[in-house]
Amino acid sequence: MQEQNYYLKIGQIIKELREKQNMTKTQLADGICSISYITRIEKGERCPTSVILRQITNKLGISPEHLFRAIESSTSLHVKELLDQIFLYIERHDFKNIYELIKSKKEELHVTSIHDLQIIKGLECFSYSILNQNYQWGINEVKNILKLTYANKSTPTDMEFALMSMHGVLLLFSNQKKEAYNYLISIKKYIHNINLLHTRFILPRFYVYLISASLDTCNLKDCFEYLDYAINYCKDYNTHYTLRELYFLKSELYYRLKKEKKFKLWYGKALRLHELIKRSDDEYFNTFIQNRLNQLK
């Protein structure tokens, strides 16, 4: 009976989303399955396979996670909306808005998922520690939050990996550059084993800090490999806010290698991309560049 109710909920939500978009069953089924199969799903008589479910949700403009959260509760769906907004701010490196958003919303949402609580609390602490330059406090808090779910030496989830990355970033910001480099290198091995990414910013953002730590500690040997991988990833998944930082870091690498022409080429690319995508309140990139240039003097 419980399984039938689950199927019915999936069908009801798919039907509501389809009708809301004025989409016929024929249009939804096209290229995916038969019209009769869609009818049976919407009536709760069939549960779609994972492949068909992903195709249906893609056509409806949502993720499978969105659908499952809608089935779970409206509160869970609101949490997903909050996380999506937080991730957008993270890509822009906008920690002030992250902290203020979490502070204003967390009490009313009644978050019940341990993983949702983990990432929301982790980002709240991370943002607070950066805004107040209280990095050691942030390191300790992030480590404790990670311990809620992570088993040592196991492959982390994407959110656990994000928390690990925060630890490395805070080491870097606290001027513990060698420790930051060693820690970030130690967790790099997990990247290709993470099966599901809730947001595409996690990997290129990790590489920005790994490359920064590599440059700061004069570990230049593998920087081109890191840069090429991260730049291609950003292009493939349209994470352009991070791409401009990677362009600048590539220019910095050429500067350190005393290749002036290539330094100017990639520095120019970083500035041109910034002009294309910058927002009126976007000061982070200028600050990022200025801080990096100051270290080269």
Results as ranks from 00 to 15, higher is better:
2 Q>M: 12
3 E>P: 03
3 E>T: 09
3 E>N: 15
4 Q>G: 06
5 N>C: 02
5 N>H: 09
6 Y>E: 10
6 Y>H: 15
8 L>T: 09
9 K>Q: 08
9 K>F: 05
12 Q>D: 08
12 Q>V: 07
15 K>D: 08
15 K>L: 12
16 E>T: 10
16 E>F: 14
16 E>W: 00
17 L>R: 15
18 R>T: 10
18 R>E: 11
20 K>W: 04
25 K>I: 08
26 T>Y: 12
27 Q>E: 15
33 C>I: 04
36 S>N: 13
38 I>Q: 12
40 R>S: 09
42 E>C: 06
44 G>E: 08
44 G>Q: 15
44 G>F: 04
48 P>T: 04
50 S>P: 02
50 S>I: 14
51 V>Q: 13
53 L>W: 15
53 L>K: 13
55 Q>L: 12
62 I>E: 03
70 A>K: 14
72 E>A: 05
73 S>M: 14
75 T>W: 01
75 T>M: 06
77 L>R: 14
77 L>S: 14
80 K>R: 15
80 K>Q: 12
83 L>G: 02
85 Q>C: 05
91 E>Q: 15
92 R>Y: 11
93 H>W: 13
93 H>R: 15
94 D>H: 10
100 E>G: 00
101 L>D: 01
103 K>N: 07
105 K>G: 00
107 E>C: 04
107 E>A: 14
110 H>F: 15
110 H>C: 07
113 S>D: 11
114 I>R: 03
115 H>P: 02
116 D>N: 13
120 I>Q: 04
126 F>Q: 02
128 Y>F: 13
132 N>E: 13
133 Q>H: 12
134 N>G: 00
135 Y>E: 00
139 I>F: 01
143 K>M: 09
144 N>W: 09
145 I>P: 04
145 I>A: 01
157 T>Y: 07
160 E>Q: 13
161 F>W: 00
162 A>W: 01
162 A>V: 02
165 S>G: 05
170 L>Q: 05
170 L>M: 10
171 L>S: 11
171 L>T: 00
173 F>N: 10
182 N>L: 15
186 S>C: 00
186 S>G: 00
188 K>E: 09
189 K>M: 01
199 T>N: 08
203 L>M: 07
204 P>I: 11
206 F>R: 03
207 Y>R: 06
208 V>M: 04
210 L>V: 09
211 I>W: 07
213 A>H: 07
213 A>F: 09
214 S>A: 13
216 D>Q: 15
216 D>W: 12
219 N>F: 05
220 L>N: 02
221 K>W: 03
227 L>K: 02
229 Y>L: 15
235 K>E: 14
239 T>Q: 08
240 H>C: 06
241 Y>Q: 10
243 L>W: 06
245 E>K: 15
247 Y>W: 07
251 S>L: 04
253 L>G: 03
256 R>W: 00
259 K>Y: 14
265 L>Y: 14
266 W>N: 08
271 L>F: 08
272 R>W: 02
273 L>C: 06
274 H>E: 11
275 E>P: 03
275 E>I: 03
277 I>P: 03
278 K>S: 02
278 K>G: 01
282 D>Y: 01
284 Y>K: 06
285 F>D: 01
286 N>R: 00
292 R>G: 00
293 L>T: 00
295 Q>L: 14
296 L>P: 01
